[in-house]
Amino acid sequence: MSDGTLSPKKILMGALTAAVFAALLAAFIFPMFFMLSTSFKTLREANITPPSLIPSEFHPENYAAAWRRMNFPHYLLNSVFITVCTIAGQLLVCVPCAYAFAKKQFRFKNILFALVLFDLVVPAQAVFLSYYLIESRLGWIDTYRGLVVPFAYSAYTIFFLTQGFKTVPDEILDAARMDGSSEIQIIALIMAPIAKPVIIAATLFTFAYKWNDYFWTSILTTSEAVRTIPMAIQNLMPTDHTIREWHIIMSGNVMLFAPMFVIYILAGKYIKESFTYRGGR
């Protein structure tokens, strides 16, 4: 456009670019918009053809119904509690482990590192039945510890933190050790602040993974007691062949969608970084 003329080729290119943008945005915004729109409709309007884009009348009480029928607060509390515990557990378990692999020399280091990264090779989903058998023998089914303790270890987190910790200069750690710092102080007061971006990225990744997890929660629980919000929407699905109340289900789905979406809007930059970091391994 710099020479100010509009050749047919340029107009065509401009139209093509606009069309691709429109198609991309439509493919990704429209489904979410339609979910939001349906969540305010009546049952009748949710099921008409042609579908209406904007509800003819707004029914925010759908949300109250979904909230009640999903028993949402119960699931939300479980989600918060389990996610916070898992993150805390991973920090306690994986940070010292990564510190040892990044900064210490010891016998069998390579073998032990390979063993700790076992999960990168063997997908745990394939052997979940054994998980279930072990947890049921321990009496951990339907307990918080059953959903937290095994997940305090993560091969991804350890690998990722080890790579990050390696960039911290040895001299700083040695100087602190000379000054009489304990190992806990070295990890918490020197290592962690320097490697903060890596730790934040790993934590965000664990957060997104655990908050959204459906697979392990559905395998390791049999009742509502410790279930998290991804399982709450089941309460809105009919158990027999009656019609699905899509307007209520979509309200529930918006509630499921909202917390992660808000966090993504607020911390999108960090979340994307945490995902690309993993890409950089």
């Binding site: 010292p96 482990c97 076992f118 063997v122 072990i134 095994p150 305090a152 270890y153 091969a155």
Partner: peptide
Amino acid sequence: LILPALAICVCFSVIPA
């Protein structure tokens, strides 16, 4: 330092496999 991670890894990844 690696014991907690190793213990969970053995109990919940190696043994299940």
